[in-house]
Structure formats: C-alpha cells, structure tokens
Write a protein that binds this DNA or RNA. Structure first.
Lengths: 336, 336
DNA sequence: TAACTTAGATTAATCGAATAACCGGCGCCG
DNA sequence: CGGCGCCGGTTATTCGATTAATCTAAGTTA
C-alpha cells in the first residue's frame, strides 16, 4: 500500500471551492489591505471554506514572494543551557510571536564559521542570533551580505562597533560587583574566585572575576583567581592547592554548579562552610537549595521579554545596531 | 542613510556572470542528476562564480518547487531540558544533517493543540517531533493532513496504533527496574519512591515507580510512593510525613534533582544518609557529584545518534510508523 | 442617453530554483 | 548522402502566495 501523502490545501483549492479567484481569497485571509472592497458575505464564505479545508498558508511560498521571512534563528551554544537561558528563549519565543516573528533554535556542535553561516543563510532568516564562538568575521560577512541581521551573543558593544552587528550581553562584571559587594561587606579579606578553564566559559568567568576584583580591591580585600574544570577531580585539586597555600576566607564560585562541585571538595577536606570558608554561587538555580549549607547566590533577573522582543524586532526591521543587556544582578542570601 | 538591504545572489546572477542559463547552473550545483552532460570546464566556471558571489541556495524557493522541506521541527517541552535531552538534540542535529535534514527546535509554552499545529504546519516541515502534551488529536490531524510525519514523544506505541503517528520514548519502566534491582539486592525492604506532582513529570514518575514496584514486590519488598513538588518546602513536607509514618530504608528519588532536594531535607531532619536511608537518583547529572554523600544514580545511555537519525529519516521518507526507544538504563553506584 | 463612478471582483506578473522537454550542430556509419 | 546518436546546452513550466493593474456590470448624474 503506497500511502499517497496528502497534499495540503492551497489558496487555489479554496478559490475553486468558493468560486472566486485566488486573489480574492488572499485578500480576505490577509484582512484586505486598505482600499480593497470585499463584502462581508464573500469574506465569510472564504473564511469558512478555508477553515473547512484546514488551510495553512505555505510559509515558503509567502516568504519567497515577499522577499523576507519571519524567522529569527537562534544558534545555540555548545554548552548545556541552564534554566536561565531556557526561560529566556521560551519567553522570547512567545513575545516575538506576538510581533509576527518566529524564533527557532538551531544547534549542532562544531558547526561554525563560513560553512555554518551559509547553512543558516539558506533559511533566509530575518536575523541570526549566535554566540560569539560560532561567528567568524567571514561568517558574519556572509550573513550581512545576504541581508540578514546579526546578533552576536557575548560580544561587547565596543567590539562590534561599525560592523553593523548587534549584541546581546549579560553584565557579568555587574554580577561580579554584586557578589563582591556582599563578600566585602561581610568582612572577608581573602577572596578566591573560580574561573572555568573551558574556552567559552573562561571569558565569562574572567568578566565576573574583573567585577569582583574592582569592588574588592577598592575595599582593600585581595582576590585570587583559581582555574577549574567542570569535574569533581578538578574541584579537589583546587582545594588541595589552597590547603597548601592557605585557605581563602570566601570563594566566589563562578556559578552554582561550579560552586556545588567545590563545596563537595571542601567538605571532603574537612573544611567547614561557611564558618571557615564562605561560598557564593551565581544564577540561583535549584542546586543552591539542594546543598548543605544552602548557597548564597546572585540571580540575574531579566527585564520583560516583551520589551526585549520589541528591541530585537525593531533592530531587525530597520537593520540598525542595538546593544542589549537585559539582565540585572540581584543578591540572594542564604548562608549567614 | 537608508541602508539598502543587500540582495543575496541568485541562480540568475551566477548564470548571467558565467554566460549560461540558470538551468545549467542549477544542474551543476546539484551535481547533474544522471544523464546530464556538462563538461568539467563549465562546471568549474560555474562553481567558482557561485563561490565568488557567495551564493547560498534559497531554501524556501527550493522547497516550494520540490514540494518538500528538509526541516524536522522539534517542539520543546515546557520543562527545562537537562543535559541528557540537550545532548540528544545536539547529537541528532549533527546526524540528521549528514542525511540531508535540518533539525530545529521551536519552543513556546502554552502553545498546543490545533492552533499550534497550524503554526508548525506553516513551515511545511518533513516531520514534527513534539511532546505528548502539545499534541491533541485534532492537532495531529492537521499535521497528518498536511502530509507531515508526526513523532509523539512520551507516547506508548500501543497508544498510537493505527494513527500513523510514530513515537519516541524513554524506557522509564526499565529505569525503575534497574533502580529497584539495585536496592533489593542490597537488602532494602521498605522502599519509597518520589513521584513529581507536575502533570508532565507525573507520567514519567509513575512509569518509573511501576518498574520499581515490579522488581521490588517480586522480591517481597514494599514500595510506597510519595508525591512531591519541585520545591524545597515540598521535600521538607515529604520528610516530615515519613518522620510520622516511619522512615523508609531507601528512597528512589525520581531523578537527581528531586533526590537532591530530598537529600537536603533529610539532612536537615538529622537523618543519616545512606546509613539510615539510602538514596538513588536518576540521569547521572553533575548534581550527583556535588552532594554529600554523592548520589547513586541510573544513567540512561543513548544508542548512537546516527542510528537514531537513520530510523527517524527512514520513517519520514516512507511515511511509515516507527517506535523508538533508544535509551537503556545503566546503574552508577556511588553510595555504598 | 451618454458619460462617469464605484463596488467587486479578475488577470497577470513575480519571487528563486528545479526539471522535463526540446534543439542545433557535429561526427559517424551504412 | 541521409539518418542516427550524442554533446552541450536552452526554453518554458511549475511550485503557492502576493499585489499592482485592469476589467465588468450596475448605478448615478448631467
């Protein structure tokens, strides 16, 4: 039995059934652009037939004719996205849909540069939103030349000046400030900061570190960075190092997850937390609530998704650069 | 300055520049379907000009003409996807790309049923892969009528018999078996199992519970379920309840994250883990390595992504039903 | 009654790529 | 010398939707 794949209904099908031309049907279904005169009777008939046939407009055909798509292509980072990113994407998807756009995610590891840009460009999205490590200069060029707006995630506005590339950032330095202020206020003088060794995370880690330093050193507290991998062994190594060189009073653990691993290693070494070493994470994930002691953390709160969506869509439509940084740090105290 | 949005190069542009017709260009760039005779010299010229102009085929135009897309639309669940799901999607994206398909994710909460199906169908994807709670019967119908293959995630093969809908499942019962076997073998007789109260997770929780029960009761061990929300308070409530009714010997915590919250509550109540109550999670996330004691867990190992991709693509191309369940449970012992 | 308006449509071109059908010229063979 | 085959292409149509331009019949006005 060769199953004949059903052919979706088209404008022509509707037109034939109603007994009018496809033009009329198109006008009706697009709510008659100004100046068109179509009596309510016709409109009703067209709409009911469209419904009956389960008509769904063919996005490709439409975009081919109009020369633009309603697609916003979000290229995912290699790293696993936490709840913060997931929530952002979900919210944004909803918001841009209200503005007539469709946000989709596309993610394949090790797919970057010109080759990747070409495959993104093939979909002719209105914009590509991609993490910095996926975008090369040549790749960005391919997109720009195809008339596609580019958002670089994790690229500072200064870096993208004059390139026509918009940016979307998290204020990691501000996050560092918030963590630093908390620790300094509570009298800690010898503060350590974890910095992930992975390429992508290292950049963010260093920015958080910078923010922490700015606040701490201003108040006469010392900050020492410690590189760490995303493994329990690496956490143990860090702690072992400290046991030799002297334990810090407090640790800013980059994020909740790195902090969690470190906490395990500290407890294994018999270090009392937070009495001997205080620990601050970031992102306010549920991990904070699983650990004992619970983790003090810095949550990044996102401004309304609707507002972010409007900024993005505005930039896309005018093809003007914008630089967004919609998250602000908020301290969540859990350890004394 | 009104920036004229650059127009991407088309077949016509290449044809004009090379001095041949668009047909020739098309044949060359698609590697001359059998029977076509085009000398190497022409091929080379066409290809070099295409390259020079940065030509990227217009996916919409192509799909309009061919009547099919290379799109596989993965509709994301409302819940935050863990590393397991993320890894699956990344791997699959890569694998299907090798087979000429493009997997994209689309996620907006509270977007389900017929309305959602219509918006998915608009893209004319070759297939829609969606979690069960996004698919209504009517919605599935819209897709099937549009000639789109449907994969229901989390729907048992029996449920989808005769509907033409393929399924993609995780063997939660098997996971329960593995956890149960471990606990029974270690002599635990009074086993509790957490079951999430959230709609979507409850289904999986109950399947895991069923598997656990099958093994345990076969060996004369008792299993008592305990409903829990994804909050620290709820975990505390569960523990409080047990303190009244009697603590179990062991707990299967649904997954690592629920187990983590429960562990916190147990420790708060002064219960020694694993001496008084043993705890088993699931998914083998890094959370297991942060907690003290570390968590014994059941990891779901996925068979090769290439193989899964082939099954999916095969079903899509033939429009035949398949029922996939590519994960198998593996115990990871960490608590004695 | 002729000229003009207007409501309510229709016609036809177009977007970019794929592809079936066709075509002119050259060489070879009987 | 006529016919056949093959080489290296070209022409023209098609996919589904949009939209500017046009058309028709009825009604209005002078």
């Amino acid at each position: 039995m060769t199953s004949i794949r059903p052919r979706p209904a088209t404008l022509t099908d509707i037109a034939r059934k109603v007994g009018v031309s496809t033009a009329t049907v198109s006008y009706v279904l697009n709510d008659a652009p100004a100046g068109r005169r179509i009596p309510e009777a016709t409109r009703t008939r067209v709409r009911s037939v469209a419904d009956e046939l389960g008509y769904v407009p063919h996005a490709s055909a439409r975009s081919l004719r109009k020369g633009t798509t309603d697609l916003l292509l979000h290229v995912q980072a290699d790293i696993v996205q936490g709840p913060l990113a997931a929530d952002f994407v979900h919210g944004l998807t909803q918001s841009v849909r209200g503005l007539g756009y469709t946000l989709v995610q596309y993610g394949a590891e090790r797919h970057r540069g010109v080759k990747a840009a070409r495959s993104w460009a093939g979909m002719r999205p209105a914009a590509v939103i991609a993490p910095r490590d996926r975008l090369t200069e040549a790749g960005t060029d391919v997109l720009r030349k195809a008339g596609i707006h580019v958002f670089a995630v994790g690229v500072a506005p200064e870096e993208s000046a004059g390139t026509g590339v918009s940016t979307l950032n998290m204020d990691h330095r501000g996050l560092g400030h918030t963590a630093g202020r908390h620790l300094v206020e509570r009298g800690y003088q010898d503060i350590a900061a974890l910095v992930p060794r992975t390429q992508l995370l290292a950049r963010m880690g260093n920015e958080r570190l910078t923010g922490l330093k700015e606040v701490a050193e201003d108040q006469g507290a010392a900050v020492r960075p410690a590189e760490m991998d995303w493994t329990p062994d690496s956490a143990a190594d860090v702690v072992a190092g400290w046991l030799e060189d002297g334990l810090p009073d407090a640790v800013f653990g980059y994020n909740d997850e790195f902090s969690g691993l470190l906490l395990g290693a500290l407890l294994d070494a018999g270090v009392r937390v937070p009495e001997r070493v205080a620990l601050v994470g970031a992102d306010d994930t549920m991990v904070c609530r699983m650990l004992r002691p619970e983790l003090t953390t810095v949550r990044m709160e996102c401004q309304g998704h609707d507002e972010v969506a409007r900024s993005i869509v505005g930039a896309v439509q005018e093809d003007t650069q914008v630089h967004l940084s919609p998250w602000s740090p908020v301290l969540v105290r859990r350890q004394t």
